[in-house]
Nucleic acid binder design. Sequence first.
DNA 1: CTTTTTACCTACCAATCTGATATGTTGGTA
DNA 2: TACCAACATATCAGATTGGTAGGTAAAAAG
Lengths: 143, 143
Amino acid sequence: MTISTRGRYALRVMAELAEHGNEFIPLKSVAERQNISQKYLESIMTGLSKAGLVEGAHGKGGGYRLCRAPEDYKVREILEITEGELAPVACLKKEAPTCEMAERCRTLPMWRELYKTLNDFFDSYTVADLVSGSEEDKGSWII
Amino acid sequence: MTISTRGRYALRVMAELAEHGNEFIPLKSVAERQNISQKYLESIMTGLSKAGLVEGAHGKGGGYRLCRAPEDYKVREILEITEGELAPVACLKKEAPTCEMAERCRTLPMWRELYKTLNDFFDSYTVADLVSGSEEDKGSWII
DNA sequence: CTTTTTACCTACCAATCTGATATGTTGGTA
DNA sequence: TACCAACATATCAGATTGGTAGGTAAAAAG
């Protein structure tokens, strides 16, 4: 029942790109700041680039930047690209063979409800929320 | 982001035990009805037995039965025994080393919120709900 | 045109988890 | 004594996780 590092790192990079506006940010600097393997990050960002969430630029002054405004990226979209479907049980995945016990399964209704809860949760967060959320936290002890 | 078969099977067995009241039910019959490997079920039920959720009886007429009323088993309790902690990210687990980036982590607040959402969700379901839920479903198409 | 910088591509790998199977032993019932 | 069923322990194939290694392609700077 865990989100792997792929999805977690992807969100952290997206948040960092959001903070830098329109600039291209090289992964080298992100990897150093966040203490993540650069090569591993590359494999994650390639997926986001192919999906059209970020734009990559080669050469000096290159790197990655967002294609949309931070508030237009739902966390769910990013996680689905990096982690695959967020179905909490195997039998709810699209590629799963239809279970012949589905109609008399005592737990399936609960799993469906959980799936909905998860999707709603991740739809309610955007990349902009990630950035501003932690900014608020920074100052929250000052009253 | 999935619950494994261990937790799912455990819930289905608990629901079946609940339906049979005070009787001891042998795993052989459960395994046949639910089309699950009996030996695999044994390893799952041993954990629940050690944790005091079910009572096992040897010999003919033996099997497993619940120790409490079905409405006194929260789904969360059963899942935590079979699956371990339900923390959605590794860094929220108790045994995890405290992350030195925690204070400036842009995503941690969201994960904490998700953890709470999951715990609330699984606290809101009991074994009694699993049983009665599917009973309702059975009749729901008759109006 | 060469060097540097960066994304992008392909292959591999060790460790761990998943979902079992196999082979018993212990304890209780008929 | 025969049988049944929980309980115990070892093993295992396949997938997933979290990377590493070693390159190619494109763009900018000199």
